[in-house]
Structure formats: C-alpha cells, structure tokens
Nucleic acid binder design. Sequence first.
DNA 1: TCATCCATGTAAAAAGTTACATGATTTT
DNA 2: AAAATCATGTAACTTTTTACATGGATGA
Lengths: 178, 178
Amino acid sequence: MSFNYAILGLLNTKSMTGYDLKKLIQKSSFLYWSGNNNQIYKGLLHLQNKDLVTNEIEHQDGAPSKKIYTITPLGKKELRKWILESPKEPPEFKKDFLIQLACSSDLETDEITTILNQYKESIEMKIIMEQELLRRQEPIPMRNKNVEFIWKMIKKNLISTYENELVWLETVRNGIKN
Amino acid sequence: MSFNYAILGLLNTKSMTGYDLKKLIQKSSFLYWSGNNNQIYKGLLHLQNKDLVTNEIEHQDGAPSKKIYTITPLGKKELRKWILESPKEPPEFKKDFLIQLACSSDLETDEITTILNQYKESIEMKIIMEQELLRRQEPIPMRNKNVEFIWKMIKKNLISTYENELVWLETVRNGIKN
DNA sequence: TCATCCATGTAAAAAGTTACATGATTTT
DNA sequence: AAAATCATGTAACTTTTTACATGGATGA
C-alpha cells in the first residue's frame, strides 16, 4: 500500500487535514489515485493506529471542525525507511489503446488511421491539461537547489512520458501510410 | 471493463481455452492484468451470457476436458464497435518511485543518488525482461504488411516508454551532481 | 520424489471508485 | 435560488489479486 506512504510523505512537508490532502492528491497527477474520502480517512486512521501521525482538533465557528494531522518522529523514521529500503518498482503502464490497436487486423487502413488520430488527440488533450495543472500550482519555496531541481523534474516526468507516446504514434502513423 | 474486450480480441485471432488465454495474457505485458483464473473464467461466462462467444467441450483421456471458446458473429460486431466507437483513453501511469523521490527532501545527496541508481537498475532489468519475452514469442504469420508493422510497433511501445524513463533519469542524475 | 504442466473453477481478501450523508458559509 | 467550498465520515460497489481445490501426466 504505497497510498498510505504517499499521505505520510505529504504530511512530512506540512501538517494538514484530510480535506487538504484530498485536494493535493486530486491536483497532482503523479499521485495517481482518485483522492477519494474513503481511502484518505481510512489511511489516516491506519497511520494514527501505528503512531506514525497524530492529530489535533481545531474548532471553528461557522465551519466544521478540523483534524490537523502531524507526522510523528516514528512516522518520519518509517517514511525514511520506505524511501531508502523499499524496492524501487519500475513504472507500470495501462494503455488500453494498445489493446484496441492489437485487435485492429480486420479494419480498413482508413479506419486504423482514424483511431490513431483519436488516440493522438486524447494524448494532446491530456498534455494540455497537465500543463494547465502545473501553471496553477503556486510556487513553493525550496530549501536548496537540489530539492528545487528534483521538484521541477518530477513535474516534467509525466509530460515527458506522454510526449514520448506521441513520438511513437507518429512513427506508427507514418508507417501506415506507406 | 476493457478486460473482457481483451479476451474477446484474443478469441478473435484464434479459438482457444481459458487456460490458453491465461498463458497469453501472462506472457504479453501490454495486456497489463495478472491473468488470474478468477477474471478469465468469469469474463468468459459473461461473454457467453451475452452471446459474444460460444464454447465446445473437447474430452481428452488422461487430461482434463477443455472448453474451447469461439467468438460469434455478434461478438465480432461488438469488438469492432468497441475499437471504433469507444473513447481512446490516454495511457495511465503508476510510478511509485516519483512519490519516493518527492519525499526525498530530508535525504543527503548521496542517498538521493543511491535511490536514483536503484530505480535505473530496476528499469534496465525490466527492459531486459521485456526483450527476452519478445525473443521467446514465436513469429505469427500476418495477413498483410500493415498488420505486421502494427504488431511490431505494439511490441516496441512499452520498451520505448521504459527507455524514455531512462532518458529522464539521466537528466535527473546529471542535475543532482552539479 | 517433488515440482511443474494441463485445465477447470471457487473463495476470500485487498485495493480503489462512486455515491451518500450532514450542515453552515460563500459564491454565482 | 442554486451551486460550490469547507470538513468529516460511511456504505455500497467494482476491480483486481492471492490463495484454495482437484487430479492425472510428465519431467528433472
């Protein structure tokens, strides 16, 4: 369950509520989950039971009470252990279009061209949405140059992967025509 | 549920048993599911209830009976409809390493270098495994040049995505050193 | 002899998503 | 007047994985 480590990692940068976590997860797409309540509030409960986080209740008038979660020293230790000692999994890809393309042997050439173009459009749309998400993020002050650089590269990663898919697509489109 | 369409697509190339489907799915990694019994046998039942496939029982002595599944004309129609009319989803990525890297701000530079190297190794290993899987596949005779070309490109797709990840990684590694 | 292959299926659990529920405040 | 924001949580469902169960044949 890397989801719980993800929220532990977010709490390591800043104490916050489940609702704050939800918004962060929904905004950044490298955190690939939907950011639904169920996972977040269950995850926080689990982290609390393991003494990796604590919470402090802040009452507000005219607004629901907040539970502000904070990572514990044990939590920091566990997070560090996860980063350094857990296996670095290779990325996983779900490309349903490849399955559709693999089934396309009965189609006419122009039908294949059509679905290739549809895939191209859907990726281009996705890239635009990603870039829009990045533009809306407020810049966070970073401790040092390395941290800033890494953050920039993480933001670039997904877009780079989508753009690589476009390059591959272009090769397919050109190969079909000839 | 693209899984059911995937098995429908496999049955479109050739009639076969659930066990055959299982092996095919486990071998080709662009079919990203585990290829477990539960999904396959339930999927086949579902396709059968919708009259998209039929089966013929073949008794064998000294071996368990086979149920050989065949796609129906209705199944072919439904598959074609899925390929042409369903939305072409952009690819989805799960990169837990990006989360680990995003949590790395408390680490020393040499610790970051270490986890970057671990990620590099895990991707390189994955590429080797992918290429080995491709080498073991017996070449299938193709109807025409286009189909053959598309098949070749599908095989190249995942490896291309892994290699793009290596390129990105190299940029990160170089940026950290300076 | 012990493991793997063939071939079917079921059970149980984990992981993840959508929708429901509440209720005040602010924005459209 | 309707919808969105804030803030918590639960319920129901789908999807996916792991493990269980059977049993003869074959291979190391």
